[in-house]
Design a protein around this nucleic acid. Structure first.
Lengths: 158, 158
DNA sequence: AACTAACATATATAAAATATGCATCTTATA
DNA sequence: TATAAGATGCATATTTTATATATGTTAGTT
């Protein structure tokens, strides 16, 4: 059972951009800090832009900003939104071939479990990921080698 | 987000064998009824045998029986047991490269969600899958083209 | 106006995970 | 001893996921 790296990267990008606050982040910079493929990130960012999570500014001194406040980005919604294929097993989808589906409780039970999974995620926002504990935020900033001046003084802003 | 077909087949096999009760099921028969690859099923059955869910009897008139009572086969445990890779994202595993992991709440939250997923599954057994409602069981038996004589008279037996 | 640093898009390729197929072996029983 | 069952190992195919390449667009700077 896996979540795609695509979704994983989406979360990491938003986290990074949120931590950087009002300062613009660039794709190259994020790719470098996380040490991941710039090309793949490109697509991740594009989709986050299209879906209204990020504001992508072109041109010199362009970059990325959050388009919503970190408090308003729900983790459950985000993952449902970026993880395209949530069909846990064959019988969840169209092309289902399984003959017992109409009377099968396996499907029902798995669906119930999946709901429980998302209910937990629905209880968190991006702001929660930044660490309610300021020491954790400081540590994240350090690990990402961000300049922390602006951030540690003011509360998180979108 | 997916569960492997391997796990899906494991569930279906146990369901089939359970429905057939004391009569032996064969791999060929199960493959045919579900219309799935006999070879793949072979491996599924082998593992279920190795892990103590099924009793596999060789030789003429051999076949498969449950080794545990349907009431004792927990769905959560079964899926944890057959789904080998439960590392939702990179940072769950060894070869993790993500630099922020030590201070990252994403991991914590996803782990909590995964727990909720399994907690639901832990609440069900294979017996529950057979349908507490006898009409549903009858329907499953019909869909699988099983002879139902022995089953409808006696309660489910392992 | 031209240059450049940023994101956008489409297409191609590679890598990894999953699923399937095939050939051969072992076991038990009629 | 023939046969019907499962066991095992290796090879192949398929699908999904990830990455790379090449080219385009936008907007600020000089």
């Amino acid at each position: 059972m896996h979540i795609t790296r695509y979704t994983d990267y989406s979360l990491r990008v938003l986290l990074y951009v949120a931590l950087k606050g009002e300062e613009r982040s660039t794709i190259s910079e994020i790719a470098e800090r996380y040490n991941i493929s710039r090309n793949h990130l490109m697509k991740v960012v594009q989709e986050l832009n299209r879906k209204g999570y990020l504001q992508a500014i072109r041109g010199k001194h362009g970059g990325l900003l959050l388009k919503q406040r970190a408090e308003d980005i729900n983790i459950g919604a985000l993952i449902r939104d970026t993880e395209q294929d949530l069909e846990l097993v064959e019988c969840f989808g169209d092309r289902n071939q399984c003959v017992i589906t109409p009377a099968c409780r396996i499907k029902t039970v798995l669906a119930e479990a999946l709901n429980a999974f998302f209910e937990v995620l629905d209880g968190y926002t991006l702001a929660d990921m930044l660490g309610p504990d300021p020491r954790m935020r400081t540590e994240l900033i350090r690990l990402l080698q961000l300049r922390d001046s602006s951030l540690l003084k003011s509360p998180v802003s979108a």
